[in-house]
Design a protein around this nucleic acid. Sequence first.
DNA 1: TATTGTTATACTCTATAACTATA
DNA 2: TATAGTTATAGAGTATAACAATA
Lengths: 134, 134
Amino acid sequence: MNETQRYAETLGRLLELVALLNQDMERSFARDGLTGARAHVLWEVQHRGPVTQRDLAEALQVSARNITGLIDGLVATGFVTREPHPTDRRATLVSFTPHGAKVAKRMQQEHAEMGTVLFGGMTSRQFGSFAKGL
Amino acid sequence: MNETQRYAETLGRLLELVALLNQDMERSFARDGLTGARAHVLWEVQHRGPVTQRDLAEALQVSARNITGLIDGLVATGFVTREPHPTDRRATLVSFTPHGAKVAKRMQQEHAEMGTVLFGGMTSRQFGSFAKGL
DNA sequence: TATTGTTATACTCTATAACTATA
DNA sequence: TATAGTTATAGAGTATAACAATA
């Protein structure tokens, strides 16, 4: 097998591995009553704090209309609230409910655990090479 | 920063990298008039040859109904045909049109090129470590 | 009886375009 | 004029359930 073929195969394994990771995460989201798209919104809110829908649309690179729908869903299921923006009456700030904050925190812990499961078995040298490759 | 944090960060970078790769592939599919889901069907047909919808549903782990829709789309856009199964009159065999075969072959070449872009810059030792980590 | 694929129905994610309220 | 968000509309992908044809 030549180099090109080895690269192609390795890329295939990489994509498969990440697809499996993503399936895992989706299942975990579903247990919390979340979809992947809504979980990504929570992730952003956790990293930014209360945030306008406009900023969420830019951060996630989706349309404003899409954010409206995602926030509608997250409000209806009790993860976030829409609060008035203190200075701009056109804008709304998306903030966590206590439940949303709890679930987002757990998501972050599970992310860290997944990293340990994936990389914890490597030697420090192997991990260094792997991380450098990204 | 402790180990757990390094692992979590590296996992984040891995997921981001693959998300970018997937965006790249989606754009490439779009140029061919394909969506990601339809491209996956072509990929399976290329690796299996003419195949029943049932087998496609199992290979892609989606419902039979979903395959019906995807094949409808691929037939309408000229990538595949539905042929009668030679021995089982309930089943249909999904086969490439010449156009579908050509696009699928190019997809495979682009996949190989992407592998080379990703890994070609690594030393052989680095690549070995990376590949082993998968 | 069991299996293959389709029809019926519904939900989520996504987009563009038109519109309202506000800046 | 420009921006933030919603309403209107549409299409893709996904699912379950009921059904027809065939095994």
